[in-house]
Design a protein around this nucleic acid. Sequence first.
DNA 1: CTTATGACTACCC
DNA 2: AGGGTAGCCATAA
Length: 110
Amino acid sequence: MAKDRSDFFQRVYEVVRLVPYGRVTSYGAIARYLGATRSARVVGWAMNSSHGMEDVPAHRVVNRVGLLTGKHHFGGTTLMQQLLENEGVAVNENKVVNFDEHFWDPSREL
DNA sequence: CTTATGACTACCC
DNA sequence: AGGGTAGCCATAA
């Protein structure tokens, strides 16, 4: 049951879990941290599986421009936005305001 | 078993 | 500078 999906997914989940409160990161940042810049899609796909993982704050993961691309997967509502705003992250038009300020890069912060 | 797609990003022309 | 294609890995059919 441990390595069911793959180590890649496990690493992605771990990094996302390490995202501090009130901070957001991007798929590419995680992928790059794992050493696979082009694997950003896999990171997003990992998030798709993260739906059953409450420990994985996927709402803190957005695309490189701070756009809540995965918001549709949160129930098709503003749930993702509400979660971010609840943590102090301002969101406007499905985009993270001051994304550069809230951006948390694992390979940079870690 | 093979094909296609998917919450992305970067490079090439 | 802008648009299009390729790359990555896994899951689903």
